[in-house]
Amino acid sequence: MERPRVGSGAAGTGTTAPDLVPAGPDLVPAGPDVVPAAPVPAAARGTRRRLGPGRAVPFGRLLGPLLLVAVWWAASALHYLDPRILSGPGSVAATAADLIRDGRLQDNVLVSLQRAGLGLLFGVLAGVVLALAAGLSRFGEYLLDGTLQVKRAIPSLAMLPLLILWLGIGEQMKVTVIALGVAVTVYINTYASLTGIDSRYVELAESLDLSRLQFLRRVVVPGSLPGFFVGLRLGVTASWLGLIVVEQINSTSGIGYMMFQAQQYAQSDVIIVGLVAYGIFGFASDAAVRAVERRVLSWRRTLAG
């Protein structure tokens, strides 16, 4: 089955594309055969509000981590935890202060952020380009999708021996491992969103004789953004997961290196400081992506919104 072609409709309809196929919240088929939706009764709107998740509380997602820290603190204060196996929050906080004071934590964090940032950047760019090539072209789909589906079944970490052979054990290998994990995640979600665009929008674009550029701007981009942001959120998490592993392979700096060194001397407090650092950056980066997603996709009416 061939993909619908854009730009093959009859010209001279007298109606411009931007008036009928706008981007964002107004991206709906318009025409004489479409009956406007009836207004929702006030009672139904009230019921929908009651059935929803309720008003969002600022920093509400911190409730779970704070509860976990409280349980950890109580177990340590009641001597249920052996400090040789798991240090208490007070000891971890004191160790973090010492690491900050002598500059070790900041130096390692900056190195880790650089690795994760470069891997995320290259991975997102590669994933989007591959998704567009496979999602907008039947030949591209035949050429790329099967290969990337196979790659999805192969963990990036399983390719470490081969990547070390090819790229050595330096920074290039570390960034490549992170980028591979991010690229596949972004590709899968963006490609699924592209191929899942309602065919009615494509048919409407054909009937209006939209150019290829107008079709991409008015139909493809708004339709693929939700899937792209899902892939981006998962890609951010994948970048941190890959970073944890590659920083323990012949590294001389980074949070993972600091944790590996602490393992040799049974310093559980330093290990927990590293875990907390990973958790904070992972949570903050996901929250940043969510904030951008809410702003860009503010036209969508969802339960979470």
Score class of each variant (00 low, 15 high):
residue 43 A to P: 01
residue 280 I to H: 06
residue 162 L to F: 13
residue 86 L to K: 03
residue 166 W to C: 14
residue 249 I to F: 08
residue 77 A to V: 13
residue 261 Q to R: 10
residue 65 P to H: 06
residue 49 R to M: 09
residue 17 A to D: 04
residue 26 D to G: 11
residue 21 V to N: 04
residue 99 L to W: 03
residue 133 A to K: 03
residue 98 D to M: 11
residue 136 L to W: 09
residue 229 F to N: 04
residue 24 G to R: 10
residue 55 R to V: 15
residue 146 G to N: 10
residue 238 A to I: 02
residue 61 R to T: 13
residue 210 L to T: 01
residue 6 V to C: 02
residue 268 S to E: 11
residue 102 D to T: 12
residue 194 L to H: 05
residue 221 V to Y: 03
residue 273 V to N: 02
residue 304 A to S: 15
residue 147 T to F: 13
residue 70 A to D: 06
residue 21 V to M: 13
residue 213 L to Y: 11
residue 167 L to I: 04
residue 77 A to S: 14
residue 125 L to R: 02
residue 254 G to L: 00
residue 24 G to A: 14
residue 159 M to F: 08
residue 275 L to T: 11
residue 49 R to D: 09
residue 62 L to E: 08
residue 177 V to H: 00
residue 275 L to Y: 12
residue 157 L to M: 15
residue 245 V to G: 01
residue 91 S to A: 15
residue 15 T to E: 14
residue 257 Y to E: 06
residue 239 S to P: 07
residue 246 V to H: 00
residue 183 A to K: 03
residue 1 M to I: 11
residue 138 R to W: 05
residue 243 L to E: 00
residue 97 A to S: 14
residue 194 L to Y: 03
residue 263 Q to G: 12
residue 210 L to N: 01
residue 95 T to Y: 09
residue 112 S to V: 01
residue 115 R to P: 02
residue 176 T to Q: 02
residue 225 L to G: 00
residue 47 T to R: 14
residue 102 D to S: 11
residue 173 M to T: 09
residue 230 V to P: 06
residue 53 P to H: 11
residue 264 Q to A: 14
residue 116 A to R: 00
residue 38 A to Y: 07
residue 3 R to T: 09
residue 196 G to F: 12
residue 295 R to S: 06
residue 214 Q to V: 15
residue 275 L to A: 15
residue 45 R to L: 12
residue 121 L to E: 03
residue 148 L to G: 01
residue 146 G to W: 14
residue 19 D to K: 07
residue 224 S to G: 02
residue 234 L to T: 11
residue 27 L to T: 02
residue 70 A to E: 01
residue 158 A to Y: 06
residue 29 P to V: 13
residue 139 F to R: 15
residue 81 L to M: 12
residue 255 I to H: 03
residue 25 P to Y: 06
residue 234 L to N: 14
residue 106 Q to K: 12
residue 258 M to Y: 00
residue 18 P to G: 06
residue 112 S to A: 05
residue 276 V to D: 06
residue 237 T to Q: 10
residue 293 E to L: 08
residue 271 I to L: 10
residue 215 F to D: 01
residue 175 V to D: 05
residue 25 P to C: 02
residue 117 G to N: 07
residue 87 S to R: 05
residue 207 S to L: 09
residue 183 A to W: 03
residue 151 K to G: 11
residue 200 R to F: 07
residue 89 P to T: 09
residue 275 L to F: 15
residue 79 H to A: 14
residue 204 L to F: 07
residue 271 I to S: 05
residue 254 G to N: 01
residue 31 G to L: 04
residue 299 W to M: 08
residue 234 L to A: 15
residue 289 V to R: 04
residue 77 A to H: 12
residue 190 T to H: 08
residue 148 L to W: 05
residue 61 R to G: 12
residue 74 A to E: 10
residue 141 E to R: 12
residue 182 V to N: 04
residue 2 E to F: 08
residue 117 G to L: 05
residue 10 A to G: 15
residue 233 R to K: 12
residue 56 A to F: 10
residue 251 S to V: 01
residue 22 P to M: 10
residue 31 G to Q: 04
residue 280 I to K: 06
residue 211 S to E: 05
residue 79 H to W: 11
residue 176 T to Y: 00
residue 295 R to E: 05
residue 97 A to W: 15
residue 8 S to A: 10
residue 266 A to P: 04
residue 105 L to P: 03
residue 84 R to F: 04
residue 132 L to F: 08
residue 283 F to C: 05
residue 237 T to L: 11
